[in-house]
Design a protein around this nucleic acid. Structure first.
Length: 872
RNA sequence: GCCCCAGUGGCGAAAUGGUAGACGCGGCAGACUCAAAAUCUGUUAUCUGCGAGGAUGUGCUGGUUCGAGUCCGGCCUGGGGCACCA
């Protein structure tokens, strides 16, 4: 058969051009068909697309192309999450302006994405660093201010005392600044916040409505919001008050354990701690020590638990005893009241602390089945339910009863003019600090006036544009030292004033871009009628690493935009899918240098794989399969893949094998296998077009014709089901099976196919279905094949095949037969056979009789259409 | 440290509580070829057996069930997130 090989490079460029020229993927807002909005998380323009992008955008594209074929008006846009630190780092390192660095990167990456053949509406593209985009974002900010959703308060930052600059958490390594190596300090700055905590309850309860989100993401968000019901308890200071207030208030979810108290601990930032620190060098030293741990929760909680005994005592509300007050490095000022009471027997952290400082451990909750006389707590706290002991009037109660009793008493008792206790619902979720002391972000549009205070920039004066003439020759915020940026006049009184130099967290940019795509050039943030018709996003696809922050901020932002009239819906993402990462083997030379896969040859020597350095032939060690990272050099550049194999191979391979939510490993051998498979499909298409030139209708037929038709329609049904469920790897496996069926028919039944019209029409139908169901994954090959089969017009514009359900029904079914849960035989029965009939047939089988060893069955379980289990 | 997730052949994996290993990669054997590549066919969990077959097997461990990779309890290992990386 003189079939030419499929030339991916040539065909892909040709079809990409044809799609662009015909504007096939440009979406109209007034199209009457039902809408479908599919969106992948937009990329940060780091310079080159990453293999993870290839995977993410291929998945979205499969959905987009599939839904388009099924008759939807599909919106599938792309843009750039273009503000952020790397541009400034590049500016400091390479003397290139963040703006040109970013836009150059975008140009490169746009080209790479285009070569993937994604069905994107490029006419809607924007970058968040476009002045047009951040102007609208500034308008939103001003509207949020008006609506009372913005606040200013003091909050902590990591401060590098040598570079004199604020550091991001990732720039703090082992407590030191990444460039200077100086010990990082905490500083308090007055910063801008969005009041996400106003929506804590709403964001929590609405999680129940997100039924097309992964359960694990919903759980993570629930835990993050962290609703807890507890009691604020005020303890009287035993002796002179520090700082005026004669009491210290704690928040606890376990008021039932009050009688097990052995200390009270306050945060290093608690007003009492600060008051004690004044004029006391020891206290100050301890507080400074706490501040050096950093600001990240992970650092705080993995640090060794330390406390400082202040010498202060508090009086217990019930037993009248005094307990020591510690300043402790694990108590957070941001959560609750910044103070806790410690009950070591029933809280692990308190127990660790008590053991370290030799404090008493009194169990007050007795596990069921334990004896109060012998029960002791060792090094594991008991945190579950039980009966109260050693607790005076609470003895014998359950945990919940005891909590209620304590709350009822304390909320009616007076302590220095206020109730001694108050029930409170508390959330872990904190307000969203959006201030960044950096250049490459959206300027916060406010002005500071000595007379008028904080004044919003009037809308007519927007945008507050980032100046281009900035220098990165030293660390710190270039906006601060810019000669004119901060100089302005107060819009209210006209006196000289200062412009805010903080810019916004880049999470703000990504919290509403999905709405902007619906009308990306509008002079308002959104056009409500348009955005309300498109949103919510039907299918959002992105990395699991965004499970909490980005997705929660977006959910909040949508509500804030609703409150200010920009949108009229609550939840931005109806369906969410979180994909796994792309991983790769690592390679290391004998002296520990990491080696890139591109510099390594893999050889198989007697069944074992070995790796050699291509240049020198030196053996290198094959290491663990890990997340691709620059430091381990185990990255694969998608460009190489696209150039050597073509987009369809890259796309197909990214979808095959691994389930999309799991990590996937890129292997060269796998890519080659995919390329071979695509050539095989091309041969099948070519042979079919030569063999069956006429267009006939497939119907009826027997033997081969029926086999082919059944295989094609069964595959069609499975592919529909598995694309809808985003199980791409399974959909692909079913396509392989169809190709195997068609391939073996072409190889072994040539005579029938040439002589029997029913068979040849069935072949043609099967190949046509094959091409169409592959089109979402390998669109270029599918277009080329469609044309080769003699069709006019683009496949991208044609409909999905119509499923003939009658072909899915089988007359006979084969059921496995188990004896005591072990499979012993198969039984083939009519589809309509009743349970008694199936049972009789199963018991008559020779292997079943043998397995029963003469015993009579006690019970026979027949699950219709599934299985027979004989219990002996 | 806290929250969440994953673990199945040599490898990637499949499996509404119902035949564990579909499909692919790799390997092995064969066909075609002067030869190679490409292609095609067969085979491929482990142990045992000439074979029919039998036994074992889904990270470890205990449980629920007629039946558990799947559900529940306790562990182990790896990964993601932890509020200024995006």
């Amino acid at each position: 058969m003189a079939t030419e090989r499929y030339n991916a490079r040539e065909a892909e460029a040709r079809w990409q051009k044809a799609w662009t020229e015909a504007k096939v993927f440009e979406t109209k807002n007034d199209d009457p068909r039902p809408k479908y909005y599919v969106l992948e998380m937009f990329p940060y323009p780091s310079g080159r697309i990453h293999i993870g992008h290839v995977r993410n955008y291929t998945m979205g594209d499969v959905v987009a192309r599939y839904k388009r074929a099924r008759g939807f008006n599909v919106l599938h846009p792309m843009g750039w999450d273009a503000f952020g630190m790397p541009a400034e780092n590049a500016a400091m390192k390479g003397h290139v302006h963040p703006k040109s660095w970013t836009y150059d990167n975008i140009a490169t990456m746009r080209g790479q994405l285009k070569s993937m053949g994604l069905s994107l509406d490029w006419s809607r593209e924007f970058a968040t660093c476009d002045v047009e985009y951040y102007t609208q974002q500034q308008k939103l900010f001003l509207d949020f201010m008006k609506a009372g959703l913005v606040s200013r308060k003091k909050s902590k930052v990591n401060w590098d005392p040598v570079d004199m600059t604020v550091l991001a958490n990732e720039q703090v390594i082992d407590g030191r600044g990444w460039r200077s190596g100086a010990l990082v300090e905490q500083r308090e700055l007055v910063q801008w916040f969005l009041k996400i905590s106003d929506f804590s309850e709403e964001l929590l309860s609405a999680i129940d409505t997100l039924d097309r989100w992964p359960e694990k993401v919903r759980t993570m968000q629930r835990n993050w919001i962290g609703k807890s019901e507890g009691l604020r308890v005020r303890f009287e200071i035993d002796g002179p008050a520090a700082g005026g207030d004669p009491t210290i208030e704690v928040f606890t979810t376990r008021p039932d354990t009050l009688f097990g108290m052995s200390f009270l601990a306050i945060s290093a930032d608690h007003p009492v701690a600060r008051a004690l620190g004044e004029g006391n060098a020891d206290v100050t030293a301890f507080i400074d020590d706490c501040h050096r741990i950093g600001t990240s929760a992970a650092a705080l909680e993995t640090a060794e638990k330390k406390g400082y005994d202040t010498g202060l005592k508090v009086r217990h509300p019930f037993n009248g005893k005094s307990y020591p007050v510690y300043i402790a490095n694990f108590v957070l000022m941001d959560y609750g009241t910044g103070a806790i009471f410690g009950c070591p027997a029933h809280d692990q952290r308190d127990l660790d602390f008590a053991r370290k400082y030799d404090l008493t451990v009194t169990p007050v909750v007795l596990p069921d089945g334990e004896d109060a006389g012998n029960f002791v707590v060792g090094n594991v706290a008991f945190t579950e339910d039980g009966k109260l002991i050693n607790s005076d009037f609470l003895n014998g109660l359950g945990v919940d009863e005891a909590k209620n009793k304590v709350a009822s008493i304390l909320e009616t008792r007076d302590l220095h003019g206020k109730p001694a206790g108050a029930r409170q619902v508390n959330y872990r979720l904190r307000d969203w600090g959006i201030s960044r002391q950096r250049y490459w972000g959206c300027p916060i549009p406010v002005i500071h006036c000595d007379s008028c205070g904080v004044v919003p920039v009037p809308t007519k004066d927007l945008p507050v544009k980032l100046p281009d003439d900035v220098e990165f020759d030293r660390p710190g915020n270039p906006l601060d030292r810019h000669p004119t940026f901060s100089k302005c006049t107060c819009p209210e009184c006209g006196k000289p004033a200062r412009r805010e130099t903080d810019t916004m967290d880049t999470f703000v940019d990504s919290s509403w871009y999905y709405s902007r795509f619906t009308e990306p050039r509008a002079g308002t943030p959104t056009v409500p009628s348009v955005v309300n018709s498109w949103l919510p996003v039907d299918q959002y696809i992105g990395g699991i690493e965004h499970a909490i922050l980005h997705l929660l901020y977006s959910r909040f932002f949508t509500r804030a935009m609703k409150a200010t009239g920009h949108v009229d819906f609550d939840e931005p993402f109806r369906g969410l899918f979180t994909q796994g990462m792309v991983v790769h083997e690592t390679y290391q030379t004998a002296d520990g240098e990491w080696v890139s896969p591109g510099d390594v040859d893999i050889v198989t020597d007697g069944g074992t794989r070995k790796a050699r350095l291509r240049t020198t032939g030196e053996d290198v060690t094959i290491g663990a399969i890990e997340k691709m990272s620059k430091s381990k050099k185990n990255t694969v550049d998608p460009n190489d893949i696209l150039e050597s194999f073509g987009a369809d191979t890259a796309r197909w391979f990214m979808l095959s094998d691994s389930p999309p939510e799991r990590d996937v490993e890129w292997t060269d051998a796998g890519a080659q296998g995919t390329a071979r498979f695509l050539q095989r499909v091309w041969r099948i298409v070519s042979e079919t077009s030569e063999l069956v030139p006429a267009t006939g209708t497939a119907e009826g037929g027997d033997k081969l014709a029926l086999t082919l038709r059944k295989a094609a329609h069964k595959t069609l049904a499975m592919v529909e089901e598995n694309i809808e469920g985003l199980r791409f790897n399974v959909a692909l496996a079913k396509i392989y099976e169809l190709v195997n069926t068609i391939g073996s028919a072409l190889a072994n039944e040539r005579g029938t196919l040439e002589g029997d019209l029913a068979a040849s029409n069935a072949l043609r139908e099967a190949v046509g279905i094959l091409v169409k169901i592959m089109a979402p994954m390998t669109p270029h090959l599918a277009e080329e094949s469609w044309a080769a089969l003699g069709h006019d017009g683009m496949l991208a514009l044609s409909d999905w095949p119509v499923l003939e359900k009658s072909l899915l029904v089988e007359d006979e079914i084969t059921l496995p037969v188990q004896v005591n849960g072990k499979k012993r035989a198969d039984v083939t029965v009519s589809r309509t056979a009743g349970n008694a009939e199936v049972e009789a047939a199963a018991l008559a089988l020779e292997p079943v009789i043998r397995a029963l060893e003469g015993k009579s069955p006690k019970k026979v379980i027949v699950v219709p259409g599934r299985i027979v289990n004989v219990v002996a």
